[in-house]
């Protein structure tokens, strides 16, 4: 009898212990993620009826659909982010392959470190660095004039190319790490077997290396896409007035126009957009989300 009671008490104590261990995570999720989102959701459906009076309505979302500037910016952000993700993938794949399969001994950690070092400076500083390189009086323009490629100074900033460059640069580390991890586990003899059975380099890449690296490709792509879609500093500084990134619209609603309900609605549209594209990407590549998380 008393044993049963004490074991019951023991179980209650264990449950309390577990609860206390989980508490920081629960608080973090609840107070900083769930609660603000609920608040934002409510806010996004409140619509101004007359000065100082707000009521429930879909006006903010209708505004998004009827004003071409908003949904065009929205579409542009999505397409450019997908482009950034693809370019990052194409550039990072050989780098990751080299780090995972070719580099030996001390070279490997050194290469990883070289990918990491730019992240010791803040994103703002890194982006300002690109501005110094790309602006009309900058290093790239100067070198091009020196080489006789152009006669006058060239403005390389404030166009889509500069925005993509900045975003690809910022995303590469987040692509290289999961890719290199995935490729590391590829057995060399599988690649050799691929050649031995008559495969060309392209066949081996397409049928053996890429399928093996798929979880890494998906994980890296999700991260890079999310970072690009939600980026603010890079499109504003490198794109200037031509940046037209959707985050700028959210910023403008919240800060410049002080229209919080509209900003909240935009925020939810962005969340919906990125969720949809990630879902579509997973479906397209035939990868499960939970499996991707497990393997990356």
């Amino acid at each position: 009898m008393s044993a049963a009671i004490s074991s019951g008490q023991g179980r209650a104590a264990a449950r309390l212990g577990l609860f206390l261990l989980l508490l920081p995570a629960i608080l973090w999720l609840g107070l900083l993620v769930v609660l603000p989102h609920v608040e934002m959701a409510i806010l996004s459906f409140s619509q101004r009826i007359r000065a100082g009076v707000y009521g429930f309505g879909f006006g903010n979302y209708l505004e998004f659909l009827t004003e071409p500037l908003y949904w065009r910016t929205f579409g542009r952000t999505a397409i450019m982010s997908i482009l950034v993700t693809l370019i990052t993938l194409v550039i990072s794949f050989p780098v990751a392959l080299y780090i995972a399969k070719v580099a030996r001994g001390a070279t490997k950690p050194i290469l990883f470190l070289m990918c990491l070092i730019p992240f010791w400076a803040s994103e703002l500083v890194r982006t300002l660095g690109w501005m110094m390189l790309l602006r009309e009086t900058g290093v790239a323009s100067y070198l091009m004039q020196l080489a006789g490629l152009t006669y006058g100074p060239v403005e390389l900033l404030y166009n889509d190319g500069a925005v993509i460059l900045g975003l690809v640069y910022g995303g590469m580390l987040f692509m290289i790490v999961p890719l290199a991890n995935a490729l590391e586990s590829l057995d060399d003899s599988q690649v050799e077997a691929g050649y031995d059975l008559g495969g060309s380099g392209f066949t081996v890449l397409r049928r053996i290396i890429i399928p093996h690296a798929m979880p890494g490709i998906v994980a890296g792509s999700i991260v890079v896409f999310m970072l690009s879609v939600g980026n603010f500093v890079t499109p504003v500084l490198l794109g200037g007035k031509n940046g037209l990134w959707f985050t700028e619209q959210i910023y403008a609603q919240f800060i410049t126009r002080f229209n919080w309900p509209q900003g909240a609605a935009f925020g939810f549209m962005l969340l919906l957009l990125s969720t949809l594209i990630v879902w579509a990407g997973l479906r397209l590549t035939g990868q499960g989300f939970s499996e991707t998380l497990r393997r990356s």
Partner: peptide, 8 residues
């Protein structure tokens, strides 16, 4: 030696 069958 490890057969190197393609698991994919």
């Amino acid at each position: 030696q490890n057969l190197a069958l393609f698991p994919m």
